[in-house]
Computed example of a mutant assay.
Amino acid sequence: MATYANTWRNKVWTGWFLMQVPLIFYPIRPELTVPKVMDLLEFIWPAWAYEPAGAPLHAAYELKQWYIQKYNDPIVQWSPETATGHDSWMGLFLYLEFAFLLPTVLYGVYRLAVQRRGTSGGDELLFLVYALEVAFTTLVCLYDTVYWDNAVYSAELKRELQVQLYGPWLVIRKCSSNLKSVTGLPGPAALGALDMATRILGRIKAADAASETRKVQ
């Protein structure tokens, strides 16, 4: 019979997943989004839904154009048509986000916000992989900025991207003011992976202890 872990940290995960849904489908606030999220705008929606003025997602499209104009981030601007070969990993991350991260976020909302049963061992393994994927892909993006052409990207601009965008998302991505009022806590990434790894380790230790008890009996 499955056992479920109910802890205050589930509220942090719930807040995180709830925040991700609008960011993935309708990213409109610069302080709450990162380049990887804005990539999905053109991946999920047809052009008529965001390009024309007055389109439902035009605000998200304008945000992306603002971000490109401000940072000229090649990760956000990647597309199969403009790929140069060495940057094919950007496309891989994009497909991975659509195929794995999005379904996991929706499942996390269902499990923690709708069912509210806590996490099972399977959930914890899934969320561990999710958190590691978020941390790893963000680390790759952060590391890639180091090698951007210095003639195009100033050291100041690189530091801003590394310290204000990619770095915080790698370690802890704080919730918005509204979500923070609910959870009062930062959201998962590297710390989320640590949380789920700790839960899984606890289950393994409990199983080992139960096995030893049966042997003694």
Rank of each mutant, 00 (worst) to 15 (best):
A210E: 11
A197W: 15
L161Q: 09
N72R: 12
E160Q: 11
R117Q: 14
D73C: 03
G15A: 14
E156F: 01
A83G: 04
D144Y: 05
A190R: 03
R117C: 08
L142T: 07
L96G: 13
L170I: 11
V146N: 10
I172M: 05
A155P: 00
Y50G: 03
W48G: 03
E62L: 13
T104E: 13
E124L: 14
N178G: 06
S181L: 08
G187K: 03
V146L: 14
Y110R: 07
T104V: 15
A189E: 02
A206N: 09
L112S: 04
W169P: 02
Y147W: 11
M19L: 05
Y71I: 12
I68Y: 14
G184M: 00
T84D: 04
I68K: 15
L194A: 14
V134F: 01
S154F: 01
K11R: 06
G108C: 09
Q69M: 10
W66C: 03
A210R: 07
I28K: 07
E212M: 09
V105S: 06
F98D: 08
F17W: 06
L201H: 14
Y26L: 07
N6E: 13
A59R: 09
D195I: 08
R116L: 00
S88W: 13
V76H: 12
L128C: 06
S120W: 15
L101G: 04
V76Y: 15
T213L: 11
A60V: 04
Y153P: 01
I28Q: 04
V216I: 11
G167P: 02
M1A: 06
K180P: 00
P27M: 13
P56R: 09
G85F: 02
Y130F: 15
V114G: 02
L18G: 04
C141D: 02
A207S: 09
S176K: 01
V34N: 11
L32G: 00
V37P: 00
Y147T: 12
F100K: 04
H86Y: 03
A49G: 03
A53P: 01
A99I: 14
L132C: 12
D149W: 03
W13H: 04
R199S: 15
H86M: 03
K158V: 06
Y110T: 09
Q164D: 05
E62R: 11
N178K: 07
W169I: 08
V134M: 09
P186Y: 02
I204F: 13
S79P: 00
W148T: 01
V37E: 12
D208V: 13
Y153K: 01
M1R: 10
G167R: 03
A53E: 12
K205P: 01
F93H: 09
Y71C: 03
S120Y: 14
V37C: 07
L179V: 00
A47I: 12
R116C: 01
P186C: 02
T183C: 04
C175D: 10
Q115E: 10
S176Y: 04
T119V: 15
T137A: 15
T137C: 14
W13G: 00
T14K: 00
T119F: 13
V134G: 05
P30M: 12
V163H: 09
S176Q: 01
Y147H: 14
A151M: 02
T183H: 00
Y71G: 05
I172A: 09
L125Q: 14
L165S: 12
T198S: 05
